[in-house]
Amino acid sequence: MFADLKRILPETCVLIALGCLFGLTINHQLVLDAFSGRLTAQPSAIAEESGLAALPMPAMLDEVRQLVASGGIVVDARSPDLYTLGHISGAVSLPMAEIEVSLPDFVQQVAKERTIVTYCSGFGCPDSFDLGVLLLEAGYRDVRVFEGGFPEWRDAGLPVGGGEQ
């Protein structure tokens, strides 16, 4: 049953290598962006309609850490459930799903001069970008989007608030 293994094993390796090579070739830009931290959250319909002259700037993990250390406010665009399960330590919950309700309160409490970093679940989730656009529209001047979001923060072993996951 396994007599041909000597022939089958190299063929298997070639097969796997070919598949990987094919995938890497097609998606090389995505991989380069992911590993250099240049990935930005995708603007969705809201962002495209906004017609803002300036869009929120992307921020990488290290920048986000520095911004937090220098008094920036981190804003979580995910659902309240996900926020409760775990969030970037010190982040304010501002779910995109109920933004009409929560944004006025936020605007009242947070000065327009503060630096704001938005995030959501990483991997192309659009909410952090959309929230960034809304905050710019609301008059905030320095708004950044942390594309890696909660997964990248958590995986880097940085402080997390909220319940156990």
Partner: peptide
């Protein structure tokens, strides 16, 4: 780790 998830995602489906 975060970025490595992309590596799996761009290779596994093609294999």
């Amino acid at each position: 780790p975060y970025s490595s998830n992309y590596l799996v995602a761009v290779t596994l489906p093609y294999v």
